[in-house]
Amino acid sequence: MTEQVRRRPGGCERPLNEAYDTALLDLDGVVYAGGAALAHAVDSLVTARDAGMHLAYVTNNAARTPQTVADQLTGFGLPTGAADVITSAQAVARLISEQVPPGARVLAIGGEGLRVALRERGLVPVESADDDPAAVAQGYDPAMDWGRLAEAAYAVQRGVPWFASNTDLTIPKERGIAPGNGALVEVVRTAAGGTPQVAGKPQPPMHRETVLRTGAERPLVIGDRLDTDIEGACNGGVDSLLVLTGVTTAAELLTATPPHRPTYVDADLRGLLTAQPAVEPAGEGFGCGGWHAAADGGTLTLDGAGEPLDGLRALCAAAWTAAGGGSCTADASGALKRLGLSGLSGR
């Protein structure tokens, strides 16, 4: 389980897929980017599954149905059923259903995944603020146009309760980082004011939805974002693995505040199949592998040699310990450059 204030990455003597019964995997930036599987993702997950680990895919992307996501993963060579996919659309639909009458109309501002999730909870998706909706549900849709955002704004201005599947400001795509649902939520907020109830990671409704649907007893959250995946794991009191294949950079990891500090750090999903090295106190700093890191005044220093990820783990310990309950402000540029990371993600 997570510490109240984590000051260094954890170690694990067993491969992670043996130490945990269920992997709760983010998708964008972890398994794939846009329409392409990330390097090592499929082979690693197939190996973990064949060894007995349950794989569940937990995504803040509300645009697509679980079956559509499962079909894509199956097409990558990773056989997946719809029941193995949990979306923020499902979480927000449950949240809405607990606050409106059965069969209520809901203005659905999002993709087919949101509409299917609302119907699953017995709600009726509608298209206009003039359809007398009992709630507004806003989720990511890559085909979103001005008219849909305007309908949401009209309804919110009239006092209709507003719900958002998630508020991720960005989403990884093949060509780079694109605006996410959170950016579109801000468009509606600018026009209409107010604040939506949010269901997706890192909020508790998403964790509750995941537990209800997977029955996981020893879950490991795996993600690429500190402010959704890792914070969501922290909020749920479960361990986490950050992979550097998506949004988070090495430099951002070093400045993470306690809710955003992962249990484990690795380059990609191959880390799921390996033990995690311990980071130990050493002199005035911390050691991992052949590296020694310390906070020296306003600078993070790094000495030694070895695997770059071990150096990063040692730097995390030095930075998080120096920061305590805050964010490390020490200059890490020289240390990261030595590791060949220089603030870049692994993708």
Rank of each mutant, 00 (worst) to 15 (best):
A178M: 13
P66L: 14
P161T: 04
L241W: 09
A216V: 05
A251S: 13
A33P: 01
G283R: 13
G290Q: 10
T210E: 11
P277W: 06
T210F: 09
D71G: 03
V247Y: 02
A33E: 10
L169E: 12
G306T: 07
V30H: 09
K337Q: 14
E231W: 04
A295G: 09
L25R: 11
G193T: 04
A256E: 12
G324S: 04
L16H: 08
C328L: 13
T299P: 05
D227P: 01
A33S: 14
L336P: 11
V243I: 13
T257A: 12
L169F: 11
P172W: 07
T59A: 01
V136L: 05
A48V: 14
D168C: 04
G176W: 05
V100H: 07
R119N: 00
S88Q: 00
R49A: 13
L38W: 09
G113M: 10
R49F: 02
T274K: 05
E186Q: 15
G139H: 12
A91K: 07
G237W: 04
I171V: 15
L242F: 05
L341M: 15
P79V: 13
E98S: 09
A335Q: 11
A89E: 08
V243R: 14
R218K: 13
C234N: 08
A294E: 11
S88E: 04
Q276P: 00
G297P: 02
V92T: 11
G236Y: 05
N61I: 08
D168V: 05
L273E: 07
L123P: 04
A51M: 04
G111W: 02
A93H: 10
P133H: 08
V211F: 11
T59L: 00
T59F: 12
A89H: 02
V46F: 01
E217P: 00
R175K: 14
P308R: 15
G215Y: 01
M1D: 06
A36S: 13
P219Y: 06
D303I: 03
D145P: 06
P66H: 05
E120P: 02
R213C: 04
T249Q: 07
D266A: 15
T255L: 02
R270L: 12
P66Q: 15
L118R: 09
Q276G: 09
R218V: 07
H260V: 07
V126E: 12
D132I: 05
A332S: 15
V31Y: 08
A33G: 12
D168F: 02
A117T: 07
S97N: 10
G304V: 00
I86G: 05
A233Y: 08
D84T: 02
Q72F: 05
